[in-house]
Design a protein around this nucleic acid. Structure first.
Lengths: 252, 252
DNA sequence: TAAGGGAACTTGTACAAACAAGCGAGCACC
DNA sequence: GGTGCTCGCTTGTTTGTACAAGTTCCCTTA
């Protein structure tokens, strides 16, 4: 059973994506949407809040909501899993484990993965992943000791690790923190990706946890330049004018 | 007058950042927070929703909320303005206009900035910005025709364009769409930033609009590698298990 | 001892009502 | 003609209530 507000949100999203509400146009008022969907105003507000969070719709007090965009930016919702992102966009993907070994965690790794839970043993995996047959991503992942057995049981050419771990032990990657920057390709990166040493790579370092907050993996992913772009939509918040003035003059 | 839920959110955030609720610990239940703050449960829910959106707190039905992080990730809230971000982090910044000229918009620019509104005239500005005295960012910005006069009136070494435009014409950068990838430094980039040609740069392309949805600027910002890192926190949503299973098997 | 069932607790969804605050259009006035 | 003001509309905030759905833990039972 899908929630009512989610169905309303989906309907509105469809209307936006198909152009029934073009970019720059106004959305119906909350009152009208409420009567139209036979729902309370609160429910409609919840639905619209979803679209605002997605960046499709802009909202400010007193004025009708307007449509800001008509392209779904799913990139950060899909930030957890390369395979899911690729599949959602219709790409053909591949993956191959290059090397894999158990070792004891370094100090910073222990800190990131929840110190010394397993006597400090971790599993280090180096994977090369491809998009449309082209190698695009070098993934250096350190798994916490308690998931190591499940990861070792995976086939070397497993396409979606996220999916495989969910199927085998019901593991869910619920939360993630991501750091994104640019680095030059090292010798190994260059060899695996087929680029020159020192050429630009987009790096995404991440730490992923279960929904209990237990760290699962810490990873250093490097994308070949041009292969992948991250996209984000943002807004300055619900009460732009007053908040902005304060921010501008004194900082947060 | 700050909203009640925002004050409650701020209090909770403080408690998390100062360690009163350490990472991994449980937050009080909504009912307890409600009685403690003498507010309705709905208000408390709104407050906690803020923290969940910030990625500080994880939430799932039936279980107590847990603390996920204790570092404020303000990067994407501050994605609008380099100066604001830098100031909030206590950095000393500088800026200098390298070149600036009016010209007619190219076709893709017209599309991004709201086609042909002003007969297609735009203002192109190349700025070099520094952090702690070091040049770190090359900013190639194309402003829509209607803001061109205000931008031209700014001093060449204006530190915060966002702030200056707010003060002069009340302009607010309300919404933004950002594309992030890595590119090699071109000849001009290399010269301005003091790096070798071809060395990695972190590129952020963005289109910014007012809260009426009117496009203001389209920019191509390139950061020297190592100078800036973007950070994001994300989660898979409110209903992890069911949603995840569907996503995994069939895609969205 | 291990498995199962259930009860208490906690978060999610939905509705209703009232007031506050900001926006925009139209109107009166100068 | 332009300026300023008022009024209606729209979104934001808060409270209260009720039920649904998931989690956790304890207690019973095999």
């Amino acid at each position: 059973m899908v929630a009512r507000y989610e169905r309303i949100a989906a309907e509105l999203r469809d209307d936006i994506l198909t152009g029934a509400y073009p970019v720059g146009s106004q959305l119906p008022s909350e009152a009208e949407l409420a009567t139209r969907h036979r729902a309370a105003r609160g429910t409609v507000r919840q639905a619209v809040a979803v679209l605002v969070a997605e960046g499709l719709v802009g909202s400010r007090q007193g004025a009708r909501r307007i449509v800001l965009g008509n392209a779904r930016s799913q990139s950060f919702a899909e930030l957890h899993s390369f395979a899911q992102w690729a599949r959602a966009n219709g790409y053909r993907i591949g993956g191959q484990v290059v090397s894999q070994r158990r070792r004891s965690a370094t100090a910073p790794e222990s800190a990131r993965l929840g110190a010394g839970e397993d006597g400090g043993e971790v599993l280090e995996v180096l994977r090369l992943r491809s998009l449309e047959g082209e190698p695009v991503l070098v993934e250096r992942t350190v798994y916490a000791g308690w998931v190591a057995p499940a990861v070792e049981a995976l086939p070397a050419d497993c396409a979606s690790v996220t999916e495989a771990l969910y199927d085998s032990i019901g593991l869910i990657f619920a939360y993630g923190e991501h750091l994104i920057d640019a680095v030059p390709a090292g010798a190994e990166d260059a060899r695996l990706l087929g680029v020159r040493r020192g050429s630009p790579l987009l790096r995404q370092r991440r730490v992923t946890t279960t929904h209990e907050g237990r760290p699962v993996e810490s990873s250093d992913d490097r994308y070949r330049a041009g292969s992948v772009t991250f996209s984000i939509r943002n807004s300055i918040g619900a009460n732009p004018l007053t908040r902005r003035a304060g921010d501008l003059r004194f900082g947060p």
